[in-house]
Write a protein that binds this DNA or RNA. Structure first.
Length: 931
DNA sequence: CACACCTTTGTTTTT
DNA sequence: CAAAGGTGTG
């Protein structure tokens, strides 16, 4: 066990009272939580499934889980059942809870921000959008398309906050009900409704759906014994209700956070939750982790000064203390003012180049190394508004950088060219326009003309050819066009990086089509194409404004340029915070139609937090400052307009802190220098079963699907296989409770679970018949096995090495008549995404089962639900399990190093791959020329 | 100092 | 199209 401070030890050891951990920046919070959870797992009678730990992002969850597993493996040797410990977001927890215990919700899918807006606009009347009045004279009612984002904000505030509905006008209240009904009618959750549904189950079980509510509550009562909430300061009122609901039967609660780092008020975080925690729970213990192990004395002093500017009533009393080995030297912290943004950018670049090679010690007792590009971050209040001059200067000097949120997907020449195809098809552009855009797209190999795709476009635009709407598939047309033009990573002119970049843009567009088509799949074809083009022109550019270049899992050695928000939880040896201008940081309030023109601000407690206050901005500045380990450069230059002429109050305040210099020479030769050596970061790799399957099958296929983001076309029968799986899941779950169904339940099961939103009426009938037949057949062939069900939809997990985890669910685990344990995977032909189960995958299941129970399964089998489908059954062999572990490990490594190569030669995998046209020619090349 | 008028701007982002 | 900073007037 590493050494802990007395406060850390106290937090780790307090397992029997509600605990509040106030964790200052850099206080080793994650380590303390992880160690505390490890202690919980040592308690007699405590199983991993008794623990639920919440984080705000999937990334933070992966890191926390990995840390816990490392500690547990070290201290307990190995432990079984860890897959059943919940570490994740509250959203995923709620979704999981509902889709495990409430059969009616098994078929629900989740709307993203994009599909949610598409859905609301397509149903603008039925969702109540156009009936919402506003306080603005110019806008008597919300309007379709224009106000759908505002509408989603209103809907989430009304369910996520403690809104006083008596102050909200009738039409808006009606809209909430209409929108909720519309979601349910279409089997959708949005991010709010999944939490809301779960909370309502926990709060008023009597109104629930009988047995489901009972089972859900039973699970919470029996299994949830320890709840840990990280980043508690960012919890919103609905999430606070969820926490209350989860601990209502006496579970131990531990909340961890720092009120000074509340930076998401504008999306509902309620600081009051953490400020008044002590008064709301009985007998709480409170521990403050005040020691900062990250930053030098100077940074800590500056941070403390910034935080002390928050008024006493809005802050928990605490004083961050310097405890790091980092030294402060005069000149490490500079607040510099410049005459123009260009001067400021140049000065930043000078410093960055000066810092490269400076000796730096990451941890006490380790060897120093030379700083490199990736040790530097430049943090802006608004990257979009202010980062331009710096990016230009970095570009000029050839300093490598990563920036998010500056480039817009729809401004790129690649996407302009692609959009023109659809404009041509709907008569909004001449073919000459298309040719002009493709000529400058940088996508076509020499000698290839977009004219090669014209026949496809003309045929596609003939909307009189067939009556089935599903045949007018946007995604298929798109992939066919790319194929006809021979566009692949290696045919795009330029160096390999250029090829990757282009494919990444094109993959994003595939996602754009998927989003649109998920909502508009079954519209009259002509209308669908027209809506698509209109949407591409007016809506989509605003939906997909960040074309953040995801570099995959490999981390390049480059300067990070990002917003302060995105820097939360991170640290760098050197941090720059430029453009500290009045009206920018702190940001002035903004105009325009807002939520409080629809909902009166008196109906929402602390409504101001949604608009943003100066204190909120101060907390954001506090986060920025405390990211730095040693070097911190604050700077100001007047902006282009009248509004941004003066320096930020924060800037002036910083200059009054003794550790801060207003000018200092470059370090030059005055400090020790070493060869630049970027810090080694181990990116977390968490793979789902289906991702792993693709990675095993063909690494390049994985790259096309998951890194570039290409999606296969929607199949009209989509949902059939899922429906069968869900029906079987209900059968097995009820069998586990002693409720063994027979064939008379088939109609009801199909009715409840089969959801095929893209099927035309005739196909829907066919699918229903097929589903009934499949379930009846299952009852005949396997009905007798039902009582021998051991687990249904069992969550498993394989932790292969630090940072590499595979997550997944096993359809069914049952005891055979021979008393052996069998792992079963169901298969159905109609299952849209050809989920072929390979032997490898089955053996991964077997490994997961082993980690879960500590015992080995005897056989793995594939059970085909089709009438004449083939089943397989295979003995689990120990050596195979070891081999599979090695293969997962290799797969994870290839991801981290970004080595995702094509299979060397054409093979059966290629023949079955539905994205192969993006990889190589369909025909195997018989004569390969080798230079 | 109070007020009217004119000008400029439009953030931050996860699930 | 709304809001608030800046500027000018009394």
């Amino acid at each position: 066990m590493p050494t802990y401070t007395p406060a850390q030890q106290e937090a780790i050891a307090c397992l029997d009272a509600p605990l509040q951990i106030i964790a200052c920046a850099g206080s080793g919070k994650t380590q303390v939580i992880s160690q505390r959870i490890s202690e919980i797992l040592k308690l007699p009678g405590v199983e991993p499934r008794h623990v639920a730990a919440f984080t705000f992002t999937e990334k933070a969850a992966a890191e926390l889980k990995d840390r816990i597993l490392s500690i547990v493996e070290q201290e307990h040797g190995s432990a079984t059942g860890l897959a059943e410990m919940y570490v994740g977001t509250m959203h995923a927890f709620c979704l999981n809870l509902l889709q495990t215990y409430v059969p009616e919700t098994f078929k629900y899918s989740v709307l993203t921000e994009q599909t949610q807006r598409l859905f609301i606009d397509r149903n603008s009347r039925r969702s109540g959008l156009t009936e919402c009045p506003t306080l603005s004279a110019g806008t008597p009612h919300l309007r379709r398309f224009i106000h759908s984002r505002l509408y989603t904000q209103v809907m989430s505030i009304l369910t996520e906050d403690e809104t006083d509905l008596s102050l909200v006008c009738e039409e808006v209240k009606a809209a909430v009900g209409k929108y909720r009904d519309l979601l349910e009618a279409n089997a959708y959750f949005d991010y709010t409704s999944m939490v809301d549904r779960a909370v309502r189950f926990l709060e008023s079980p009597d109104e629930g759906i009988g047995t489901a509510a009972h089972a859900l509550l039973q699970h919470v009562r029996d299994d949830v014994k320890f709840v840990v909430v990280d980043e508690y300061q960012d919890v919103n009122p609905l999430q606070e209700r969820l926490i209350r609901g989860l601990v209502q039967f006496g579970a131990n609660l531990c909340v961890v956070g720092d009120d000074d780092q509340t930076i998401y008020q504008w999306r509902g975080s309620e600081v009051a939750n953490i400020l008044t925690f002590a008064g709301r729970y009985e007998g709480i213990r409170s521990v403050t982790l005040a020691h900062n192990f990250r930053s030098s004395q100077g940074i800590v002093a500056l941070g403390r000064r910034v935080a002390e500017g928050i008024s006493v009533g809005n802050r928990l009393p605490k004083s961050m203390e310097h405890a790091s080995h980092q030294t402060w030297d005069r000149g490490d912290i500079i607040a510099g003012a410049y005459l123009t943004p260009e001067d400021e950018a140049a000065a930043i670049c000078e410093r960055i180049q000066d810092l490269r090679g400076v000796a730096f010690t990451d941890r006490p007792g380790t060897e120093p190394r030379g700083l490199s590009w990736s040790d530097v971050a430049v943090l802006y209040r608004s990257v979009a508004a202010d980062a331009g001059p710096l990016v230009a200067e970095m570009e000029r000097r050839g300093i490598p950088y990563i920036v998010k949120g500056l480039t817009r997907l729809f401004d790129s020449r690649e996407i302009s060219a692609v959009v023109s195809l659809f404009r041509y098809m709907t008569g909004h552009a001449a073919f000459a326009d298309v040719e002009a855009l493709w000529a400058v797209s940088g996508l076509l190999a020499p000698g290839v003309s977009v004219a090669a795709a014209k026949p496809l476009l003309d045929a596609g635009a003939d909307f009189g050819r067939g009556e089935r709407w599903g045949t007018y598939n946007l995604q298929r047309l798109y992939l066919d066009v790319l194929d006809a033009l021979g566009i692949r990573e290696d045919t795009v002119p330029g160096d390999p990086v250029r090829g990757e970049l282009a494919m990444y843009q094109l993959g994003k567009f595939s996602q754009v089509i998927s989003d649109f088509e998920a909502i508009y799949f079954s519209s009259n074809p002509k209308d669908k194409y027209d809506s698509f083009v209109g949407w591409l022109e007016y809506q989509a550019p605003g939906y997909y404004d960040e074309a953040d270049l995801d570099t995959g899992y490999a981390t390049p050695d480059a300067v990070t340029i990002s917003t302060v928000h995105q820097a939360k939880g991170m640290q760098w040896p050197a941090v720059f915070v430029p453009c500290l201008r009045a009206n920018r940081f702190p940001s002035k309030r903004h105009g325009g139609l807002g939520v409080f023109h629809v909902v009166p601000d008196t109906a929402v407690p602390h409504a101001d937090r949604y608009r943003g206050t100066v204190e909120d901005e101060r907390r954001l500045f506090y986060v920025a400052v405390t990211r730095a380990q040693k070097f911190l450069y604050l700077s100001f230059s007047p902006g282009t307009s009248r509004l941004f002429q003066k320096a930020s109050a924060f800037f002036g305040e910083a200059t009054t802190v003794p550790f801060v210099s207003t000018a200092a020479p470059l370090l030059g030769a005055s400090v020790a220098r070493l060869e630049p050596h970027p810090r080694v970061e181990v990116p977390q790799v968490t793979l789902s079963f289906s991702e792993l399957k693709y990675l095993f099958e063909c690494p390049y296929q994985f790259k096309i699907r998951f890194l570039y983001g290409f999606n296969p076309p929607i199949h009209e029968a989509l949902g059939y296989g899922k429906g069968l799986h869900d029906a079987l899941a209900e059968m097995h779950k009820r069998a586990l409770d002693g409720d063994v169904l027979d064939a008379t339940a088939v109609d009801e099961l199909v009715q409840r679970h089969l959801h095929t939103p893209y099927a035309y009426p005739l196909l829907r009938e066919q699918l229903e018949r097929a589903a009934r037949a499949a379930l009846k057949r299952y009852f005949v062939l396997h009905g007798d096995d039902l009582p021998r069900t051991l687990h249904s939809e069992k969550q498993i997990q394989v932790h292969v090495a630090p940072g590499i985890t595979v997550d997944g669910r096993i359809d069914l685990i049952k005891r055979l008549e021979t008393d052996e344990v069998s792992i079963v995977d169901f298969k159905s032909t109609y299952r849209a995404q050809a989920e072929d189960v390979t032997r490898d995958q089955l053996h991964v299941y077997a490994v997961g089962y082993q980690e879960l129970t500590g015992t080995s399964a005897d056989v793995v089998e594939v059970l085909n639900l089709d009438e004449d489908g083939k089943n397989t059954r295979e003995t689990v062999v120990g050596q195979l399990l070891i081999d599979v572990r090695d293969r997962i490990h290799d797969a994870g490594e290839s991801l981290r190093t970004n080595k995702l190569d094509r299979l060397p030669t054409w093979c059966s995998t290629c023949a079955a791959c539905d994205v192969r046209s993006l990889c190589r020619s369909a025909e195997p090349v018989s004569q390969v020329l080798t230079p």
